[in-house]
Every structure is written in C-alpha cells, then in structure tokens.
C-alpha cells in the first residue's frame, strides 16, 4: 500500500475515547466525533442514537477535503477550523494533526467560545496520541512486529463467505 495504514490498538483507542468524552462534557456539547481525513469514524461520545454517524464522518471528511482544496487555491496550507451555524444546532469542525478531524455538535446550552476553548486543549492531547500511533507505525514494520496480523492467513473461502456464497 502506498501509505501507512492506520492501525489503532486498544490502549490508544481508550485514551482517545477518554479525551473525546471529557471534551463532550467540558464543552457541554451534544456529540463529539473524532474522524480521520479519509472519512472513517475513530471515536465518538454523546447522544449518538439520533445521528447517522457513518454518513456524518464521510460528509465531514468530504467537507474538509473540499475546503482544503479551496485553501490551496488561494495559497493557504489549510483552513484548520470550519464552523457551521444552524438555527438550533451548530457544528464546529477542526483539524487535528495531519490526519484527524474533530467534530463538535452543540446547541444553545453551550457557546462557540466555550467550544473553541475546550477544543484547543483537547486537540493538543489528541495530537500527542496521533503522533504516538504514527511513530509506532514508522519504527515497527507494520503490525507484524507487535503481533501476528490476523489477515496473514486469509483464504479465498473467507472472502467468499463475506458475500454469502
């Protein structure tokens, strides 16, 4: 594969989840998502039942990618923050490191100022964990060095089974 895969282990995932949970509480947000730039959801916290999280992740990534394209057109590296204001709910989207996107959904129980403040602090912590994941991926030769990849013995039969054959 051309680029390093994102491989997340339980301990890192727990840390991310903890930070996201804390941010959601501190910012008095309805939901907080951590998404990667390719549109995959990494972690989430809050009232998730009311939201189609998968679509939200993919659309956010599309949105960020499009805005990134706009930034480059005018000679900016990126727009690190996007804010969408609705009648009741608002979305605060910010870039974390090279590959993360932090999405905060909030209503009148919170404020843009509070969200910005809390996001700033959480971003720093999230960034550290992303760096760890990246460093590990670079120093170890893939997952194999940590333990046997579960995919080393995928058979044709396994793949057929996925399609219900």
């Amino acid at each position: 594969m051309a680029k390093l895969d994102l491989v997340m282990f339980e301990e890192e995932y727990k840390l991310l989840q903890e930070i996201i949970g804390r941010l959601q509480k501190d910012a008095q947000a309805k939901v907080v998502f951590l998404v990667d730039k390719n549109g995959q959801q990494i972690a989430a916290s809050g009232d998730l039942k009311s939201i189609d999280a998968t679509s939200l992740a993919s659309l956010t990534a599309g949105n960020v990618a499009a805005t990134d394209g706009l930034a480059k057109l005018i000679g900016e590296k990126e727009f690190s923050l996007l804010f969408h204001e609705g009648e009741k709910d608002n979305l605060h989207i910010s870039i974390v490191g090279k590959r993360g996107i932090l999405v905060v959904l909030f209503d009148q129980n919170s404020s843009l100022a509070l969200v910005r403040l809390r996001v700033k602090k959480a971003s720093k912590e999230l960034q550290d964990i992303f760096d760890q994941v990246e460093n590990r991926a670079q120093t170890e030769t893939g997952v194999g060095a940590r333990f046997e990849s579960p995919f080393s013995e995928i058979t044709d039969e396994d793949i057929d089974k996925l399609f219900g054959d």
Binding site: M1, K3, L4, D5, L6, V7, M8, F9, E10, Y13, K14, D36, N38, Q40, I42, V143
Partner: peptide
Amino acid sequence: MTFINYASR
C-alpha cells in the same frame, strides 16, 4: 488507507 481498529475489531 485501511483503518484497522484492534479495540473494536
């Protein structure tokens, strides 16, 4: 870029 999450498998 495949995303492999070992925590949620």
